[in-house]
Design a protein around this nucleic acid. Structure first.
Lengths: 158, 158
DNA sequence: CGAATTTGTTTGCTCCCCAAACATTCGCCG
DNA sequence: CGGCGAATGTTTGGGGAGCAAACAAATTCG
């Protein structure tokens, strides 16, 4: 019964029920897509994470956003956001301005350099997206995004 | 032009091109699914990460595996694996036995307690998978996994 | 046998995430 | 209008995931 215990070099492993699990496929694909994202930027001499890109887009499209509002939109704690903004601000992509209306909050905004960089980043993201979707038709790509959103809606946050 | 600067509490943000990006949907869904996984286990009084579950399945199905082979299968560095195995071993789920044939490697195996725990964990994972797939037909679930695998194949690892 | 390679480990570094505590500021209510 | 509770940003402390480089022990190959 069964096979002799693994010994030959790099025989494909038995993954059991793993391949039938949606969560498993999700995790592996996410990891590969993340690596492709990083490689795309590294090749172009740029450095940015997917999360940072999303953050920059949000700030660009919602000028004057507060850190709390941004943290909520990103689904992370406000304390997690602090060092991320520190880094982006140190790279002169973004500024924390005092809000004119509320002394507690900061009004986040891209710097001119940040807007220029975001334009470059967006081109790289398009290249990256095109490659990871290269095995899919446009209809399949839409289907995939739609299915992912529906799965997200079914997952309980607590 | 445009809209007045964001001020009302929690007006839905402008996400720009983000919703059309596959990488964005992937990241958000992954995060929600991860949270659901953790919540499912926490509710049952168990504690395990998706990565740890995958690791346990792999060790269960491939007795005598070495750490290098396992790291390769998981797509992580061998040094990353060390503290993970330490933790699982401290919980008495898994053991590092000396390999009878190669003094450099460890033969990984589940403990009896590990096998019992994995059976419990597998039931919880099934519950979790059922919930996150509850908005999809079985055909759609298969389609989703298939599309994810094809995307993974298109992402370059470098 | 001796040199090169493999394996597991340690150390050091970066990043992401949360919880709790804190000072500042706002907003409400008496 | 004055005080008190709530919100905001920050700091600190903790944990986990990940990589690279260096190292000792063991194997393999010349």
């Amino acid at each position: 019964m069964g096979r002799p215990p693994a010994s030959s070099p790099s025989r494909p492993l038995d993954r059991g029920l793993l391949p039938s699990l949606m969560g498993y496929a999700l995790r592996r694909t996410q990891s590969a897509v993340f690596a492709d994202f990083a490689a795309t930027f590294a090749t172009a001499g740029e450095s940015l994470s997917p999360g940072e890109f999303g953050l920059l887009v949000l700030v660009d499209r919602n000028a004057g956003l507060s850190q709390m509002a941004l943290a909520r939109a990103l689904g992370i704690d406000r304390s997690t956001l602090v060092p991320i903004l520190d880094r982006l601000q140190a790279r002169d992509l973004l500024v924390r301005r005092p809000s004119p209306t509320d002394g507690r909050t900061h009004a986040l905004a891209l710097t001119p350099a940040g807007r220029k960089a975001l334009a470059r980043f967006s081109r790289l993201v398009r290249t990256h997206e095109k490659r990871i979707a290269s095995g899919l038709s446009t209809a399949e790509t839409r289907t995939l995004i739609d299915l992912l959103e529906r799965v997200r809606a079914s997952a309980r946050s607590l």
